[in-house]
Nucleic acid binder design. Structure first.
Lengths: 132, 132
DNA sequence: CCATAACGCGGGTATATACCCCTATTGAAC
DNA sequence: GTTCAATAGGGGTATATACCCGCGTTATGG
């Protein structure tokens, strides 16, 4: 009757995992969430807040505030496009360098997870997001 | 070469799942995180901040602040024990009622997850926390 | 007993996240 | 063309989370 709270399991797993990635990425002064944003922007070249929010499946206001942190750290800059409502985000030179420097640390974190989880758990992880 | 970021998968899954539970629990004015704290306190009767933090595998300061929210909502009260350093947390009468009222909503959320995930994914979830 | 170590917790700071409402801008319909 | 709807974003508020530091309290050693 006491089935474990699935949400709690996921949240705990996410926190633990985030801590691992954050610990690796801290060596270049990034968090996993920041690394993810940089990756999305790097891939796209330029993205508006709303586009980035859609790409990350996060709330617009969340992205807006997270982007402010990246701007504060001089990793991302805003540039205007024709539309007066939107402002496009792109990496600064510092941002590009930081992102490049972060990549090996991210891969190390990935490897650490792969070392700990069984292959079928990895697969389950991948299919999990799709199901939700 | 582009293996998906396991951390991102987990974080996204956790966010989505939390939203589902929060939506159910919002009917009684609780979040999943708050429900979890109430459950732990209810099970134990009385718990100190540090004990609750250990039970939830969360930082002490996190629990301290989350407990303040619960106290603000009059769901939890502090009572002193012999030790002048510690103050024990226990449910108020309101807290007990709220927790009882929340239970069916939590179960509905659990059922919603079970309806969406395959049984082997449920199992994978359960073993995931242990592995991390 | 007293000095010191260990413990418990609050507060400061930072980040991540979401909801709401408001404003400005743009596009669309007539 | 002017009105009106849709879009983009900012700001307010709330919560969740973690790290560090300092202060008070208790326990421990001598």
């Amino acid at each position: 009757m006491d089935s474990p709270c699935y949400c709690d399991l996921l949240r705990t797993a996410a926190r633990k995992t985030t801590a691992i990635y954050d610990r690796h990425l801290a060596e270049v002064g990034l968090t996993l969430a920041q690394y993810k944003l940089l990756k999305k922007i790097e891939r796209a070249g330029e993205l508006s807040i709303s586009e980035l929010a859609a790409a990350c499946d996060l709330d617009r206001s969340t992205i807006g505030r997270n982007a402010q942190v990246l701007e504060k750290h001089d990793l991302v800059a805003e540039c205007s496009c024709g539309d007066g409502r939107r402002s496009m985000l792109k990496l600064t030179e510092t941002g590009r360098q930081r992102f490049a420097a972060a990549a090996p640390h991210w891969r190390a974190a990935q490897a650490e997870i792969e070392a700990v989880l069984a292959p079928d758990q990895i697969v389950a992880l991948t299919t999990l997001s799709d199901a939700l």
